[in-house]
């Protein structure tokens, strides 16, 4: 039972990060490999601000810094390459990733540093003792995902995002400023990553320049499992991967192979259904 809850909450973290990958892929048609490092930026933002203020303010600072970083990276690094080959964009994204890690290393050193978060304790639900951090991660994560779904489905900007992801040219003919929509997408993706980074710190309370790498790559796998470009897909993929990870680590025989099993799952799903669980096959434009 607690394994399942732990899995779901880890899944929520992966899902929040995966949403950033999938939205950027859907709308800007690029793989933003630097997305994982936004988590690291968010974690250091909390690390630094927590020293002088309370947690809530630290969270706000972290979200703002992540959103700004995401938007600035898009503007400086990706926007000039809008009509370049996908390979050039991919290599640039990897470059941005190293740049962010390098910058963090310059400022904070390369060693991992512990971070002390207020301890949250646990609560009693029925017969089970559940950690409060798990409940918060799950609750807030679910809320954010519902919010995002409603935003995309029911607002003018959200619909424009769907339209751009399907057909940039046709969206422009409706009067949609594609560059603005891409910018908003990066801001939203980075905001979700900032939230994820806080939840991640609740699980593993330490910061390092490469902190974003592992959750980043797993969330990317989650996005691909769910069907990259699909928002519900990223949620399903994230939760699935989180569950698999926690279940595997709770079974002693499987524990050492957890990561291998996770990526094995990715391979199997791609073999069976190359577009991912909820991916849509788009007709190629003529």
């Amino acid at each position: 039972m607690s394994t399942i809850l732990d899995g779901l909450s880890l899944g929520a973290i992966y899902a929040l990060i995966a949403l950033g990958y999938t939205m950027v892929y859907g709308i800007a048609k690029m793989l933003n490999f630097a997305h994982g490092d936004i988590i690291m930026v968010g974690a250091y933002a909390i690390f630094v601000t927590l020293a002088s203020t309370n947690l809530l303010l630290a969270l706000v600072v972290s979200i703002l810094l992540c959103a700004v970083t995401g938007v600035v990276v898009e503007k400086l690094a990706y926007k000039p390459l809008r009509s370049a080959s996908p390979l050039a964009v991919l290599i640039t994204a990897i470059g941005v990733s190293y740049f962010l890690q390098g910058t963090a290393q310059l400022i904070f050193g390369s060693k991992s540093q512990p971070i002390t978060l207020p301890s949250l304790g646990s609560i009693q639900i029925g017969n089970f003792q559940v950690e409060l951090r798990t409940v918060i991660t799950l609750g807030v994560g679910a809320l954010l995902m519902v919010g995002l779904t409603l935003f995309v489905k029911c607002t003018r900007t959200g619909r424009a995002m769907l339209a751009v992801s399907e057909d940039k040219g046709a969206a422009q003919l409706m009067g949609v400023n594609v560059n603005r929509i891409i910018m908003i997408t990066f801001a939203i993706g980075s905001t979700l990553a900032a939230c994820a980074s806080f939840f991640y710190l609740l699980q593993i309370p330490s910061v390092s320049p490469t902190l974003g790498a592992m959750p980043g790559i797993k969330a990317f796998a989650a996005a691909v499992i769910g069907g990259i470009g699909s928002i519900p897909g990223a949620m399903v993929g994230g939760v699935l991967l989180g569950l698999v990870e926690k279940i595997c680590t709770s079974i002693p025989v499987l524990n050492p192979y957890t990561t291998a099993i996770e990526f094995g799952l990715l391979i199997v799903i791609l073999l069976v259904r190359p577009i991912g669980l909820l991916g849509v096959r788009r007709r190629e434009k003529v």
């Binding site: 399907e166 040219g169 046709a170 849509v280």
Partner: peptide, 22 residues
Amino acid sequence: CHSIVHLGMTQVPEGRRVFQEL
């Protein structure tokens, strides 16, 4: 293109290009 649309001109493109998933 998008600012031209705001000036009062638009186009039904070749092949219709309606948003298939909407």
